[in-house]
């Protein structure tokens, strides 16, 4: 067996899975930076996947389908925004409710599609000239469908917004210290609404990539827990879009180990160990990044805390 082939295969699979995780992670980072914890990612992804599937099936246009997914994610996260920003209730529970709602709605609405076995053509890969000739990196990163390229671009855009624009500065300060931001004249509620809705829309898009790119038919449970991994990845990448890029692909790579080791016949470690690996890693990383040396600069100080104006 040629090690180059094995490595290339690992990378191709890594980019597939990693890009799905990346878009959702970026969305959740954007939301959490404003101080809102949205645990509904799994539900948003699933609802987004269904919406894009329906629209792609009807129109055959992936851009409209992706927008539909974004809109679906936005509408569901609007409920979360309303409940947790305006009504100031427990964000953890509201997020769990959004997950249940998203999965339930998708199952309910998608049933006729699943029963009639509707199928779509998956998105075609576009080969980027020159870059796709690089060994290993080329065929994996630069021979993918347009939504994967979108995920690369989003990393830069979100990083730019968060760190180089005044809106980004406002958003971060809202997440750190809302009352101070308020006293500086920043509209805390509006900022948090925007962050939650944009984040939700991105989670929807990640569902679109999942179904339009790699799993082109609708059935129940298609997101298979990826939303929760994305939530963990936010911490893994310490709320920074650039780190999220590496984090998502690192998780993607870890996820390929099981299949790779089975195909090269390495059998020392039981299959199930690899299945726990992403979760173990997340805990380890949580511990490392939570220890005081790192924490102070990373986690939005007001994450998960509703903001009420002083009377």
């Amino acid at each position: 067996m040629d090690p180059m082939i094995i490595l290339t295969t690992m990378f191709i699979l890594m980019v597939q899975e990693g890009s799905i995780l990346l878009i959702a992670t970026l969305g959740e980072i954007f939301t959490e930076r404003s101080g809102i914890l949205n645990l509904g990612v799994e539900g948003l992804m699933c609802f987004g996947a269904l919406s894009s599937f329906i629209v792609y099936y009807l129109t055959g246009n992936w851009v409209i389908a992706t927008l539909a997914a974004a809109f679906a994610g936005l509408m569901l996260s609007l409920i979360h925004a309303f409940v947790s920003i305006t009504l100031k209730v427990n964000q953890t529970v509201s997020g769990l409710a959004i997950t249940i709602l998203g999965l339930g709605l998708s199952s309910f609405i998608g049933r006729p599609l699943a029963l009639s076995r509707v199928r779509i053509e998956p998105l075609e890969s576009i080969r980027i000239p020159v870059l796709s000739e690089i060994p290993v990196i080329g065929p994996s990163f630069f021979n993918q469908n347009p939504l994967v390229y979108f995920s690369y671009v989003m990393v830069i855009i979100l990083w730019f917004i968060l760190y180089k624009t005044s809106f980004g500065l406002n958003l971060r300060s809202v997440g750190e210290n809302p009352s101070m931001a308020d006293s500086l004249g920043i509209n805390v509620f509006l900022t948090r609404y925007i962050a939650t809705l944009v984040g939700g829309a991105l989670c929807g898009v990640s569902g679109a990539l999942l179904i339009l790119g790699y799993y082109p038919s609708w059935y129940d449970g298609i997101t298979a827990g990826r939303g929760w991994i994305a939530v963990a990845l936010v911490i893994f990448s310490s709320w920074n879009p650039l780190y999220a890029f590496f984090g998502a692909y690192f998780f993607g790579l870890v996820g390929t180990l099981n299949a790779t080791f089975q195909s090269i016949g390495f059998r020392m470690i039981p299959t199930d160990f690899f299945r726990t690996l992403p979760y173990l890693l997340t805990i380890v990383v949580l511990v490392i990044f939570s220890s005081t040396r790192f924490r102070r600069r990373k986690m939005p100080a007001s994450l998960g805390k509703p903001y009420t104006r002083e009377l």
């Binding site: 409920i79 409940v83 009504l87 209730v89 427990n90 529970v93 509201s94 769990l96 409710a97 959004i98 249940i100 709602l101 999965l103 339930g104 709605l105 998708s106 199952s107 309910f108 609405i109 049933r111 129940d220």
Partner: peptide, 17 residues
């Protein structure tokens, strides 16, 4: 569909919250 029970549960949770 089984999904409708989930939807009802979630709605109940959101309205109660």
């Amino acid at each position: 569909s089984v999904g409708i029970t989930d939807v009802f549960q979630a709605l109940l949770l959101i309205t109660t919250l």
